[in-house]
Design a protein around this nucleic acid. Structure first.
Lengths: 220, 220
DNA sequence: ACGTGTGAACCGATTCACAGCA
DNA sequence: TGCTGTGAATCGGTTCACACGT
């Protein structure tokens, strides 16, 4: 997944910074649970793969949330980040393709920490349609447009076979879905105002192998 | 997931280029199936989110595989990329954490196109240990070191709860695992010579939401 | 003439270094 | 003094533009 897949006007901050803000938010919430109220950029980045400087820079794109000579108030910063990221209201997402990966994602706990809720699931398979998984009824993909419109859903996760993914993405953008997280091994083409994030697990592994191979070759 | 998570010495080419090579390889194989023998950089990148120029540049890091004024021979380029990426020999991977996501990955077809084979699976859950999923027997995580060493496995996919992930990564690097694909929502810290790729689905979605939110706010 | 291969120019992201404030 | 906030410097990756080979 990659910044270039997200089509955005110039923003003044790197798109990767947003992913890091999510990371910070998650960790701040852990700190709050431990009743830690104050934290410096050096302390919080200690366990993330981020430099203190980058942490401060990322925050500075959105404002000055710390106190010089002191650090950041954990509770206050959580509120700010919740605001910036939109985590303070629930976001409904449709999931398309209830195969193994799809059903794993349906029951993935990790989304809830960011107030993300899978609100609809679709599949082509008659076997799956009508069944309920993790509280969500699997619907017929023929009803995609109708149901997504009805529920005013603006985001989708695609985990279908690659052959049908592009057409699906076209249908989704057609009805106003503006964010797509794509797990199918294909690079989606979408209009400029739709944000796509491709997670290509095979390519990811492939890259690891490449670097591993380099090490092994070097040892020979 | 992100270039900075991979610890590498200066290579002279961007780490992202490797992911793109995988993408090219996958598409070249599709072209070969359609009996297309010759392709230009402009033609192949038409359906990928890559410019012709970037395609040529990516290849040029590893050599000149095309013919000027002509294009690239599909079959020949596949052989070259297979070589560069190490896809010409089978890679064994261990999978740790056979929850919903883990078992989805165990049966993910997409790895085979790159000659990637999940060779071992581990879990802590007594219920799961001993069961066979997609031809792989789930083993007790206590036997992690013994079995990974025995099978000379150098790579792992982690899909455990985040609390135990760091310790697991430490155990893995300890016994010589040098590549980790991490799905747990935590930024792993590892030694310099271990390559880690973090796939953090929640942060990924969070970023989509951020940009969507921007659009909606703009409309108000 | 055509499409590749590549040094140079450009652009965006990260890091540095220090001014500013508690 | 200590840590934040930020313009400036640096670094790395992408894109440009054209020389080169077929």
């Amino acid at each position: 997944m990659n910044k270039k897949e997200i089509h955005i006007e110039k923003q003044g901050f790197p798109s990767e910074a947003i992913k890091r803000l999510s990371l910070y938010l998650r960790n701040l919430k852990k700190l709050r649970e431990k009743n830690i109220e104050l934290i410096s950029s050096a302390e919080i980045t200690q366990f993330l793969n981020v430099t203190p400087c980058q942490f401060r820079k990322d925050l500075s794109y959105f404002g000055g949330f710390g106190k010089r000579g002191v650090g950041y108030n954990v509770g206050k910063l959580i509120v700010e980040l919740d605001n910036i990221l939109g985590t303070n209201k629930e976001w409904k997402i449709a999931l398309i393709g209830v195969g193994r990966l799809g059903s794993a994602l349906l029951s993935f706990e990790g989304f809830s920490e960011f107030n993300i809720k899978i609100a609809s699931a679709f599949d082509v398979d008659e076997e799956k349609i009508g069944r309920t998984l993790n509280g969500i009824e699997v619907e017929n993909i023929k009803d995609l447009e109708r149901n997504i419109n009805k529920r005013k859903i603006k985001m989708a996760i695609i985990c279908t076979p690659p052959e049908i993914t592009q057409k699906l993405a076209d249908r989704l953008t057609e009805i106003g879905v503006r964010g797509i997280l794509n797990f199918a091994p294909i690079a989606l083409k979408t209009s400029r105002d739709t944000f796509v994030s491709n997670v290509d697990m095979a390519c990811e592994l492939e890259r690891l192998i490449f670097f591993l191979k380099g090490v092994e070759d070097g040892q020979k």
